[in-house]
Amino acid sequence: MELDKVSFRYSKNKPLIESISGIVPTGKILCLIGPNGAGKSTILQLMAGELRPISGKVTIDGQQVFEMDIKKRAQKIAVVAQRNRLYDEMTVEDIVKTGRSPYHGTLATISNGEIKPIIQETHLDKLVDKSINTLSGGQQQRVWLAAAIAQDPDYLLLDEPTTYLDIHYQAELMNLIKKLQKEHNLTVVMVLHDINQALKISDEIWCIKNGQKVYDKAPMDLTNENILADLFNSKIKVVNIPQYGPYVIQIPE
């Protein structure tokens, strides 16, 4: 996937994204970080083909993502949103099955067998018949992740998947994402607001500020206090924790 001078704004508003270019590294985990309102989620939506760039292109193998047939696109790109609104009760099984719809007609019945491997991989075996509203936040995210994997995509886009989770579920979900990425050979793009999570999991990091890409670096090159201070507009210290590695903390001025 390649971004070529992509810009975006909602009509008449000031630009949200300004001329972002870059190649999403295939088969790797790319994280987008930056202050709130920088445009990270908008970039993810542009990559997903949910928004049309006002100029520039997002392409996969030379084909513009926004112009792809939605079914074909869903076979290539899966999205896990920050929060998934449901208007009615759905069981875990129902939700994971919807992930198969890019490969069937919408009127088809999808068999249990088709989603069984994914259910096992995401450890949802015991929850299949439960209504998703009865599950914890961490379990719910696992269900949406399973539905995304059921799409058998090349690209998995996640928008702050750990936001509403406690520290235990955050680690669990991150490990699962890493495992699935390896096993399914996925290209993952993830918006994270926790820089330390990003440093730990990603192969490449794009720093977004005011709708622009200010850095793209490997995580190790980003543990530079000056760069981070500039990015987040605050005093930053990077400490080295044994058996963990560099850890970023913000120091009160």
Binding site: V79, E89, T98, G99, Q151
Partner: peptide, 14 residues
């Protein structure tokens, strides 16, 4: 299907 949001449905090709 309509139990899910329009945005989510678009991402699964519906």
């Amino acid at each position: 299907y309509l139990k899910m949001s329009d945005e989510k449905l678009a991402t699964i090709g519906v």
